[in-house]
Design a protein around this nucleic acid. Structure first.
Length: 385
RNA sequence: GCCCGGCACUUUCCUAGC
């Protein structure tokens, strides 16, 4: 069961879900799966977004008198919370307690995190109190979730209070995770100086910046158009032995794009390939957008072709960039065609797609078509904003 | 008793608005 579990986990992480399931079947011929095996498969199924199968597995466990432990429930709660379905997460929580299984720190943190992501920070803070009342000690993950939630609601002072608490009274000291939250917050809110200051503060506290620290800090400088300083950090990270990842390159490319330095962006793209870093869909989306916005339309479509040659599927964002680009330069029919094309390819338009196409239709006096599009929009469960 | 297989926290791309 040991060996099988490890293999199932590896397959799952690699996105080879059906093989993981097949191995699971094979395993049952050899031995009865234990709780850990169940939870591993549960995690794989949830990771794949196959929640119904995950629920089914939970039922199966119970019927085979393998008592689910808290990990099994935690995985489900986390997944529901992650997909924004806090109510379903609570349902699982209730089921868990009804089955005589006690929620632990991870259970609480998963839900706190879900509430924070849904901008229900006050409920999250309430849950923190309840957790303490029930005798569970919040840990660093719990506090990081809360700090992230507070920052998302721009409640900076409360977030800083938690940081102070961690620095002075908490038994777990803050890590790069904690500081990254602050750096990111400042960067996203146009405070690149403060972001950089938080980055320095973290170093002063003896915490080594990790790849995410550099990524968020570079991003904040890039947003502010401080491309030279972003580039300096890009250099610094390598000097410190922190390897840039695909996100680092994406952020750098995007920063150069914002600064209008298209050639440098393209250069970075070749550099990343040269360094063995595989571009992903975001890389291409970023480049396509840069090209389109600089009226290098042929180049944009070349990139679109190239990404498919590299077996990267266009995402909703790819189509949005192209639909928007076509609309902006007056190619109304082409924009509408692509709009239908994306649906045909199984990529459902979202609000952004509709806004782009409506904007283009209205500006080109195709009001009747625009109204038809509005209907189409509501039919697709997208409400006009 | 400890370690050995399972769970929770941070980053990038697109519209319009601010």
């Amino acid at each position: 069961a040991y060996t099988f579990t490890i293999c199932i986990k590896i397959l799952g992480r690699a996105g080879r879900f059906d093989e993981a399931r097949a191995l699971w079947r094979q395993m049952q011929e050899f031995c009865e799966p234990d709780v850990v095996a169940y939870s591993t498969l549960m995690d794989v199924l949830c990771f794949a977004g196959r929640l119904n199968e995950a629920r089914e597995l939970l039922k199966q466990m119970k019927s085979r008198q393998c008592r689910p432990d808290y990990v099994v429930y935690n995985i489900l709660i986390h997944k529901y919370g992650d997909s924004g379905n806090v109510d379903a997460a609570w349902e699982v929580w209730k089921e868990m307690e009804a089955d005589g299984c006690v929620p632990n720190v991870v259970t609480f943190t998963s839900l706190i995190n879900a509430l924070c992501n849904g901008s229900k920070v006050d409920e999250a803070l309430g849950l923190l109190d309840e957790m303490v009342e029930r005798g569970h000690l919040p840990n660093l993950c719990t506090y990081n979730s809360l700090i992230g939630g507070l920052l998302k609601s721009t409640r900076l002072e409360e977030a800083q209070n938690f940081l102070q608490f961690l620095l002075t009274c908490g038994c777990e000291k803050p890590t790069s995770f904690t500081y990254n939250l602050f750096i990111d917050y400042y960067g996203k809110n146009g405070k690149s100086d403060e972001a950089y200051e938080a980055f320095l503060e973290m170093k002063r506290k003896g915490i080594s910046p990790d790849v995410v620290s550099f990524n968020v800090c570079i991003d904040s400088l890039g947003r502010a158009g401080r491309i030279e300083e972003a580039n300096a950090l890009f250099k610094e990270m390598r000097e410190r032995g922190v390897s840039p990842d695909v996100i680092t390159y994406n952020v750098m490319i995007c920063s150069y794009g914002k600064a209008g330095k298209v050639d440098e962006a393209i250069h970075l793209f070749s550099q990343m390939i040269g360094n063995g870093c595989e571009p992903d869909a975001v890389t291409f989306n970023t480049l396509i957008d840069i090209h389109y916005k600089r009226d290098r339309i042929d180049e944009a479509w070349k990139m679109f072709k190239k990404m498919q040659e590299m077996n990267l599927h266009p995402t909703i964002v790819t189509y949005n960039i192209l639909v928007n680009g076509l609309g902006k330069d007056g190619s109304v029919n082409e924009a509408v065609d692509l709009f239908h094309e994306m649906k045909k390819r199984g990529c459902m338009p979202n609000v952004i797609t509709y806004n782009s196409i409506l904007d283009c239709l209205c500006k080109n006096n195709k009001v009747d078509l625009a109204f038809k599009m509005m209907d189409d929009m509501t039919e697709n469960g997208c409400r006009p904003d």
